[in-house]
């Protein structure tokens, strides 16, 4: 038999408690190496679209708030085009789409200030509901967790990704609650009751 000469993906290891040294040194207080931390904002001032602020916290299975988590977010522009590698064309140049946010060292609260993304097609052409992809790492997480933020005031029922979730009561763990005009709440529960849906995509 011939050999399949693929390589194996490098195995993951936890980001650990000191992830801020590498990824957000200025926020940690280690100034002077980089002029600014990367991923400060997914948008520039001229970005088109509705401004939204999403806040939340990440809790573990014991109900403790994680104060050492780092989250990266990736989203489309207001028209539903991704800012890099999108085969459908160029996105709003004022949208970078990517942000790196950390839980507050004292309270564990995190906040993302961005624009509401547009709808992006699923591979078969149906439209997914507007969403922001999240990647969550922390001490104790061996492989970064993939999840998504959807919005309470969108048509989420027609989203082909959300439709794939068999236990329907879990879908709400992916939907940010509207708390004020332009403001949303999205809490992540890593384990146990109301455990957030995580993806393998």
């Amino acid at each position: 038999m011939q050999r399949l000469d693929y390589l194996k993906e490098t195995p993951s290891q936890t980001a650990g408690p000191y992830v801020h040294i590498g990824l957000t040194p200025n926020k940690l207080g280690n100034a002077g190496i980089y002029p600014a931390d990367l991923g400060e904002s997914p948008i520039r001032p001229g970005a088109k679209g509705e401004r939204v602020t999403i806040s939340g916290e990440v809790r573990d299975g014991a109900g403790m708030i994680l104060r050492d988590t780092l989250i990266e977010t990736w989203q489309a522009d207001a028209a539903g085009i991704y800012p890099a590698n999108d085969p459908r064309g160029a996105a709003d140049p004022e949208v970078t789409g990517w942000a790196r946010i950390i839980a507050d060292f004292d309270t564990g609260e995190w906040t993302l200030r961005t624009i509401r993304p547009g709808r992006v097609p699923f591979p078969d052409g149906r439209l997914m509901a507007p969403h922001i992809a999240l990647w969550i790492v922390a001490r104790g997480i061996n492989l970064g967790l993939q999840t998504r933020i959807y919005f309470e005031d969108e048509d989420n029922d027609s989203c082909p990704v959300l439709q794939r979730i068999e236990h329907r009561e879990r879908v709400r763990t992916l939907i940010a609650r509207k708390t004020a005009p332009g403001a949303y709440r999205f809490d992540v529960r890593l384990q146990g009751e109301n455990e957030t849906v995580f993806f393998d995509m």
Partner: peptide, 25 residues
Amino acid sequence: TSTTRAPFRPLIAMPSTLSEETGPA
């Protein structure tokens, strides 16, 4: 530390979409 930070429910598995196939440059 993984014992309280590990999801217990199975991951929702499906092929990647544009949201995973694109990424920051």
